[in-house]
Simulated scan of single mutants.
Amino acid sequence: MPDTSSGVATLGPQRIVCLTEETTEWLYLLGQEARIVGISGYTVRPRRARQEKPRVSAFLDGKIDRIVALEPDLVIGFSDMQAALADKLIRAGLNVLVTNQRSVAQIFGTLRLVAGLVGCNAEAESWISACQQRHHDIAAEAARWPRRPRVYFEEWDEPMISAIQWVSELIGIAGGADVFPELAGQSMGRDRVIIDALEPARRAPDLIVGSWCGKKFRPERVAARTGWHDVPAVRDGELHEIKSCDILQPGPAALTDGLAELHRLCARWSARQA
């Protein structure tokens, strides 16, 4: 952590508002939670942040007056979907940083960026190195399997939206194969909408993983879709939920718990094929 024993002020922003959960989780992991003065109302990682920090935003909008009153020297958000919120905050005279990471590599890059802002480069590199080693170990284990499960990951149900890039990449690391790899590179959700409701069934996924972006996944509804009864995942009861806070936040959670859950599902499926 930055040395303050000499009485020199800690470098970097001192009062940070985090508009999304992944920045809050990362700053806590770095031991820099004292800098956080406001968080997203969707924050659940770490759970204690909800008791320790005021909740001042949703995802698409926030309490502008309350955020301004906190006198932040930096507001950090994520994605083009927060552009309107960022615009309001900038017009209110605040410094705003909005990142737009979409891949695993970009997530690591963003973690480094935020760590650099608070003077925690060494701590960040230690965490990232350990995380990347774990990814390598998981991928090496999965490479020994005789067959990789085909995975349909559903980010939303109406309309059906398939996996964003970092989720698709994590499926690959975990030992699976995304059945919609051609859509994964599309950064906008609207460009990953599956128009033909039978197309996922035609691609015959062995596993169906739902993470409906904040609402509970309903596997029975998926299994009951017209024309899906012969899908291997439906036939074998392989429909599973990973909570969106563990996989759809482009930060530490996805790289650790989200990947671990994907790997558990893929490994269990693979073991059953032996």
Rank of each mutant, 00 (worst) to 15 (best):
V96E: 12
Q133D: 15
R202G: 08
K216A: 09
R148N: 04
E22I: 08
P200D: 07
S40T: 15
P72Y: 00
M81K: 12
C18M: 04
G175E: 02
P219Q: 07
A197N: 06
S6F: 09
R102D: 07
D191I: 04
D80Q: 14
G258D: 09
W26L: 03
D137K: 06
P205R: 03
A84K: 14
H135A: 06
A92H: 14
P146H: 15
S103W: 05
K215T: 00
Q132L: 12
Q186E: 08
H240P: 03
I161M: 11
V98T: 11
A139Q: 11
G38L: 01
L113G: 00
A184C: 14
E22A: 04
A84F: 05
W228E: 14
G210D: 04
L248P: 05
G172Q: 07
V193C: 02
L85R: 11
A142K: 13
I194M: 05
A122C: 10
P219R: 09
L117S: 07
R50D: 13
A267R: 15
V118C: 00
S168H: 00
Q32A: 13
A253W: 01
L113S: 11
W156E: 08
A163P: 06
G214E: 13
H135R: 06
T43G: 03
A139E: 08
I171L: 12
W228P: 07
A130I: 05
P219T: 01
V96Y: 04
H229P: 08
C245R: 03
R66S: 14
L97A: 09
W228H: 06
R35F: 03
I173M: 12
P13V: 06
Q32Y: 10
R91N: 13
E182I: 02
A274F: 12
E22L: 14
H263D: 10
T99V: 12
E220W: 06
E238N: 10
N100H: 09
A260C: 08
R144L: 08
A69P: 15
A201D: 03
V114K: 01
S40R: 07
R218W: 10
C131W: 04
V44L: 10
P159S: 03
A34E: 12
G31N: 10
L259F: 05
K216Y: 09
D137H: 13
L70D: 02
S103M: 09
G185T: 02
T99D: 14
G251F: 01
S162T: 12
H263T: 11
I164E: 00
A201N: 14
G77C: 10
R55N: 15
A224Q: 10
G172H: 01
H135V: 10
T4N: 15
G227A: 04
D61K: 11
